[in-house]
């Protein structure tokens, strides 16, 4: 349809409180629908156009930059309480395009598209020449470190056997020679002490996810594994046809403060 008078967009300052409200609603939506990786936080609003919407309301067309936090996607900690990943830890940014509807004073997300990318090695080196960079998640040393950490965790665990959900981050540390990994796990119907073949174990209907951090250090004649896992409160059974980690939708999983998280460990083996 041809553009007529009054059909143009409204320009708004990127730091206008109304723009910020729309951006925060967009980032909340993003974090509520993550299936893997880490929660993100708002870093900068790049562009905003506000379009009139018929019959009522306005649509905020926005470009937003985000930064990765240290909270895993399924961690119930509110994103506002999560620390931003530091440059020295090899930060990751998100580039997002959103359409956010404002109607009756309420914001709701109509569309979202985000891509994330790690900081360049060159930039990390500028702030920290000796800091380890992010390693490919399929690196054999990474895979081995995760397997060893998961085995160590299950060996010390008197409850359910936990299986790997995803490896979310890894770094190869030069001195002492070690591999640092972060990964997500989920409880199964097997008892950790009695597992013979993990392939026969199934995820519980009431999903219970956990998040682990581990360092595998090479030593003369062997290796040391230190692993710490935090198990999150269980998530309610989802309707049939829903597979994999479920989004932490507010209505489906009430946000709990970190103190309410069930702590398993820390187990240091």
């Amino acid at each position: 349809a041809p553009h007529g008078p009054g059909l143009g967009y409204r320009e708004l300052n990127c730091d206008d409180p109304e723009t910020e409200q729309a951006a925060l609603a967009a980032v909340d939506y993003l974090n509520s629908n993550l299936l893997q990786g880490y929660k993100h936080t708002l870093n900068q609003i790049d562009k905003v156009k506000v379009w009139p919407r018929r019959p009522t309301g306005e649509v905020f067309e926005m470009e937003i930059d985000t930064l990765e936090t240290t909270c895993y996607a399924l961690d119930p900690t509110p994103a506002a309480n999560c620390s931003v990943r530091k440059l020295e830890q090899h930060a990751v940014e998100g580039d997002c395009d959103f359409h956010v509807l404002k109607q009756d004073g309420q914001f709701s997300v109509l569309s979202a598209k985000c891509d994330s990318s790690p900081d360049s090695a060159e930039d990390v080196r500028k702030v920290c020449p000796d800091c380890p960079l992010l390693a490919p998640l399929n690196d054999t040393r990474v895979v081995h470190a995760v397997e060893a950490a998961l085995a160590a965790f299950n060996n010390r665990n008197n409850g359910s056997y936990y299986q790997l959900v995803e490896v979310s981050r890894a770094q190869l540390v030069p001195l002492p020679v070690s591999t640092y990994v972060e990964f997500a796990v989920a409880a199964t119907d097997c008892v950790a002490k009695e597992v013979i073949d993990p392939a026969n174990c199934n995820l519980l209907a009431e999903k219970q996810y956990g998040f682990c951090k581990s360092t595998l250090t090479q030593k003369v004649g062997g290796e040391d594994v230190a692993v710490t896992c935090t198990v999150f409160p269980t998530q309610p059974v989802l309707p049939d046809g829903t597979n994999g980690p479920s989004p932490m939708v507010a209505s489906a999983a009430p946000a709990s403060p970190p103190a309410a998280a069930v702590m398993v460990g820390p187990l240091v083996v």
Partner: peptide, 27 residues
């Protein structure tokens, strides 16, 4: 005081509405 009609006077620094402020750091 001599005024030159027709010469625009700068009204201060130009305000750039976008992009907005950086909350943490830029990478």
């Amino acid at each position: 005081m001599v005024a030159q009609p027709g010469v625009a006077v700068a009204a201060g620094p130009v305000v750039r509405p976008c992009p907005g402020r950086i909350r943490h750091f830029k990478i």
